[in-house]
């Protein structure tokens, strides 16, 4: 420690003042200050500086200011994109506001259509919660890991999944590392098993670990003919906090036929996702659907979306739908 640079010692003194050193480091600084008058003086200066920095008063904000700010925020929110689940209310609110302001009925009508579409989106969302109890394990209060373990090997204990590893070679196995108070177990299972699939769906929807969600998604991609898998992918695309996982989910859905529900889910992504890549993907997918009701969605989104690439795709979609509209009227 004697060879420490002066800069480092100064840093330690600053950390000492903030009570951020270990006991041995503190002792070292205290010893130095006892023995060295130059460092005593530096310590004095740093201490004064510390007191000045910490003692600066904050400007005050009057209570009435908060009322005004809150009102302004609530006002701005009415014109913002809403969280995913509240798009319908948002549009309703907007429609009412526009109606109050005497907006042309055609525009109000477009918004009503849009509200209807969003309403369908919300009502059509997958609500199913993965329930492993249906798959053989009995105690619903048991953690899902234990239930999976029990239903596969008929053994009861408190198992916690610590890691998972899809088999890279064959792609038809997945290994889980389980930890229990009495034993650690590695279990290699086939995702063909519906209990395993349910567990993977559970992980995709609920795991706190984004890696586990990504890996589950990767495995489940191969089981897209299973209804619950598509539901899980859609849920993940709409709600996962990690944009990387949402992107993987929307990519995994690429080859899926765009059903009514999936179309609605893409609308939600287009209108609510903060990530421009997600909105781009959604706009592209919707562009393959010739549904005139989408015109209202595109026209609205083109006004509010700040991403040029997204708006460019939306304009192409609008042009495509309009040309189809014209062709229809000519016939």
């Amino acid at each position: 420690m004697n060879k420490m640079s002066n800069q480092k010692i100064r840093e330690w003194i600053i950390l000492y003042l903030g009570d951020e050193l270990s006991d041995s480091q503190k002792q070292w600084v205290e010893q130095l200050l006892l023995e060295d008058t130059t460092w005593q003086s530096i310590y004095g200066t740093e201490k004064k500086l510390d007191a000045i920095f910490s003692g600066l008063e904050k400007p005050e904000i009057e209570l009435e200011t908060f009322d005004g700010l809150r009102q302004e925020i609530m006002g701005r929110i009415r014109y913002q994109r809403r969280p995913v689940s509240s798009a319908l209310e948002f549009l309703k609110g907007r429609w009412e506001t526009l109606k109050d302001h005497g907006v042309h009925p055609v525009l109000a009508g477009s918004l009503a259509t849009l509200a209807l579409i969003i309403g369908l989106v919300i009502s059509g969302l997958p609500q199913r919660q993965t329930d492993l109890t249906q798959q053989g394990a009995t105690d619903p209060s048991m953690p899902p890991e234990s239930r999976l373990f029990n239903s596969l090997v008929e053994k009861g204990s408190d198992y916690k999944m610590m890691g998972m590893k899809p088999d890279r070679e064959g792609g038809d196995k997945v290994s889980f590392d389980f930890k229990a108070p009495t034993e650690d177990v590695e279990m290699t299972v086939s995702p063909d098993n519906s209990v395993v699939q349910d567990y993977l769906i559970h992980l995709l929807k609920n795991s706190k670990n984004p890696n586990h969600r990504r890996k589950s998604l990767k495995i489940l991609e191969d089981y897209q003919d299973v209804d619950q898998v598509q539901e899980a992918l859609v849920t993940s695309m709409l709600t996962d906090i990690d944009a990387g996982v949402r992107l993987k989910a929307i990519t995994a859905l690429e080859d899926h036929q765009i059903t009514h529900n999936l179309q609605e889910a893409y609308i939600r992504v287009l209108m609510s996702d903060d990530n421009a890549r997600m909105r781009t993907e959604a706009a592209k997918r919707l562009g393959t659907v010739m549904d005139q009701d989408l015109l209202a969605v595109y026209e609205y989104q083109v006004q509010v979306d700040k991403n040029e690439y997204v708006t460019q795709i939306l304009r192409q979609n609008i042009a495509r739908l309009r040309s189809e509209q014209n062709e229809g009227s000519l016939q």
Binding site: P59, I61, T65, L69, E72, I73, R76, I77, Q80, R81, R82, P83, V84, S85, T239, I241, D274
Partner: peptide, 18 residues
């Protein structure tokens, strides 16, 4: 501070679903 305050809560409104 007032501008940032509004920005924080509008951002929160956007993200609270997550």
């Amino acid at each position: 501070a007032q501008d940032v305050f509004q920005e924080v809560f509008i951002k929160l409104f956007d993200k609270i679903g997550h």
